[in-house]
């Protein structure tokens, strides 16, 4: 019997990191571990470790993390070709 059943999969839409035009760079010295970047990330690619780490395989480069960081610890840099 076939019907439209799909299974939970990480990367269901592929490596969405390839969508990026800008990538976030975190200055860990400035980071105050408020974790706003983590909660506001629409893609959930920021992980809670000693400091925020970004999974660049899936980060789409929206820049919300950089925008919301209260201490400007995140900068968006253009992807090099």
């Amino acid at each position: 019997m076939k019907t439209a059943i799909s299974s939970p999969t990480i990367g269901a839409m592929g490596k969405t990191g390839t969508w990026r035009v800008f990538r976030p760079i975190i200055d860990v010295e400035k980071c105050i571990k408020c974790w706003r970047c983590w909660i506001f990330c629409p893609d959930g690619v920021i992980s809670r470790n000693d400091h925020p780490r970004i999974d660049l395989e899936y980060c789409k480069g929206c820049g919300i993390c950089a925008q919301e960081c209260p201490v400007d610890a995140i900068k968006m840099e253009r992807e090099k070709k």
């Binding site: 019997m1 439209a4 059943i5 799909s6 299974s7």
Partner: peptide, 14 residues
């Protein structure tokens, strides 16, 4: 035949 089960989550109809 198939079911919505929180222990084995599936998406139906995407």
């Amino acid at each position: 035949g198939w079911t919505l089960d929180v222990d084995h989550p599936i998406t139906h109809g995407n």
